[in-house]
């Protein structure tokens, strides 16, 4: 049986990298006594895969992983069993039984939405999650940029948004524009965006933000921005549609 698990990762846990989160969940699944399926061979491993890796320092309320189980009582039981063994800052949001023919989470990822806020000078992350109230993160921290919405629109109206990506081996000239699907200001002065998160065209939200801040002439460094992933989407577009983004947890009901 294929199970899709949606979880949040916030507070101090944003400093735990992707590989360590995988290790964390491998152990958590054992602690929760989930009847997970193992691969064959001399050193069997759990059948578990993650949707879209999250960079260190980014919070998320829309992370996904798929597991395969041999048996289970109910999705609700599994959700509770997992939440009983979580640490502060990781919370299971939903457990969904998926149709067998559904593509795995990693292959399905098409886009992700993010919110970006400005960090306080010398901001220190809270260790304790404050439960449901704090679920969507500390909303304070607008950018206090006059005419933010207007400036974002101007920025987005450009035909190209060039971005230079420097890796250890090469320098790449990219155009961010085709991968930005939505970009807008929130009433509290934070920025919300929906961008390409597929393996071939992944856009880093901070790269967009840095280009925008430079465009707006604001002297704010990328490291002063807190990025929070809100949701991860598959693209269920049918013929003739450009995009139809659906949260990964919901693709089973969406044919």
């Amino acid at each position: 049986m294929k199970i899709r698990i949606k979880f949040a990762k916030y507070g101090a846990m944003k400093f735990i990298g992707h590989l360590d989160m995988m290790r964390y969940f491998q152990k958590a699944v054992r602690r929760a006594d989930i009847d997970i399926r193992y691969s064959e061979g001399f050193s069997p491993h759990q059948i578990m895969s993650f949707a879209a890796p999250l960079g260190v320092g980014i919070e998320s309320y829309g992370e996904y992983m798929d597991i395969e189980v041999l048996s289970m009582t109910s999705a609700e039981d599994m959700l509770q069993a997992l939440n009983r063994v979580m640490v502060e800052g990781v919370e299971i949001l939903s457990v969904t039984v998926m149709p067998d023919n559904v593509k795995n989470a990693m292959a399905s990822v098409a886009a992700a939405s993010y919110r970006i806020r400005r960090k306080e000078p010398d901001e220190r992350t809270a260790v304790a999650g404050s439960g449901a109230g704090g679920m969507q993160g500390d909303a304070a921290g607008g950018f206090a940029i006059a005419g933010l919405d207007e400036k974002l629109r101007e920025f987005y109206a450009q035909e190209h948004i060039p971005y230079t990506k420097e890796t250890k081996k090469s320098v790449l000239e990219l155009d961010l524009k085709p991968g930005i699907y939505e970009l807008a200001a929130e009433p509290d002065g934070t920025v919300r965006m929906l961008v390409n998160a597929s393996s071939s065209g992944n856009i880093k939200p901070l790269a967009v933000m840095e280009r925008f801040l430079a465009f707006a002439g604001e002297d704010i460094a990328g490291e002063d921005c807190q990025v929070t992933r809100l949701e991860t989407y598959a693209d269920m577009a049918k013929d003739g549609e450009e995009h139809r983004f659906v949260p990964l947890a919901d693709v089973g009901q969406c044919r």
Partner: peptide, 13 residues
């Protein structure tokens, strides 16, 4: 709420 002893900027560095 408890806060980390180190700032985000240090932890990211």
């Amino acid at each position: 709420m408890r806060k980390l002893a180190l700032s985000d900027e240090i932890l990211m560095r």
